[in-house]
Design a protein around this nucleic acid. Structure first.
Lengths: 140, 140
DNA sequence: CCTAAAAGTTTACTATAGAAAAAAATTAGT
DNA sequence: ACTAATTTTTTTCTATAGTAAACTTTTAGG
């Protein structure tokens, strides 16, 4: 099992590869707001644990295992963003909150949140009713 | 700002004091599944940061600041348990998930979850509709 | 009231993860 | 193709939080 921090890296690497075809140390450092030296260290660990194949100075690519996990992590991340958006969390809080919680929810909870998102998406009046409650609660 | 780990201790100490009138090192160690030596160390840090007043070998009590924060942490914890329960997360996953995410949500998100819990509590048919979606999604 | 058990504390150690600075390899410009 | 700039890596250091074992203090039983 990857640690939360390892998940951050796998997720980010997966996204970079999806979007640009490759992932470089400096891109990851930039995206995660850490220093390149931290990235190198973690990439070496992810290689050891077989989430990716690392070649010093040359780059790396996800293994089948790493790719599969990356895909799920991105799915989970996107789902949680959607969820917080739907319930009305301010945009400026969404990224940090998702970043914080994504590594700590069981897949049971994730599946229940899938259902919940669907619940709101399949009937607009539900979102309206929630917004009405929010308006009332604001007045305190 | 307390770290997640500090929050765990403050929350636990608050609950113990509420329920038994005092909190001992060994109770906290037991509740948080850590060793007594870890508790002592953290208690000393919480004293330094003025969340509690620590007297070696004698015990400790929350400061006004610590008490206020403890109350909010317990509220937040209980709210998240309620939320996961309502959306149908299995009991055996709820504690760990809450333990994991509680330290990572902005108060904005917490307030939106308050609204969401109210949304489901004030109209049983909404929970029913959600459960219906869950039944459909199970069939895959 | 004194000693054994229980509770709490200290010290020295572990692991994770990140940073800073120096060193090495790669790449780009001429 | 060579040198300069960029990128990556290594090494040494930091902080947090936990453990183990030795130690001290408190408390409870006789």
């Amino acid at each position: 099992m990857p640690t939360p921090s390892m998940e951050d890296y796998i997720e980010q690497i997966y996204m970079l590869i999806e979007e640009k075809g490759y992932a470089r140390v400096s891109d990851i450092a930039e995206a995660l707001s850490v220093h390149p030296s931290s990235v190198t260290k973690m990439v070496q660990k992810l290689d050891k644990d077989e989430y990716l194949v690392y070649e010093k100075y040359r780059g790396f690519s996800l293994t089948t295992k790493g790719n599969k996990i990356g895909k799920r992590l991105v799915f989970r991340h996107d789902l949680l963003e959607q969820f917080l958006k739907i319930i009305g969390v301010k945009d400026e809080n969404i990224y940090n909150d998702v970043e914080g919680i994504e590594h700590h929810l069981s897949w049971d909870s994730i599946e229940r949140i899938v259902d919940l998102v669907q619940f709101f998406q399949e009937d607009e009046t539900r979102i309206e009713a929630l917004k009405e409650i929010q308006r009332q609660n604001e007045a305190d």
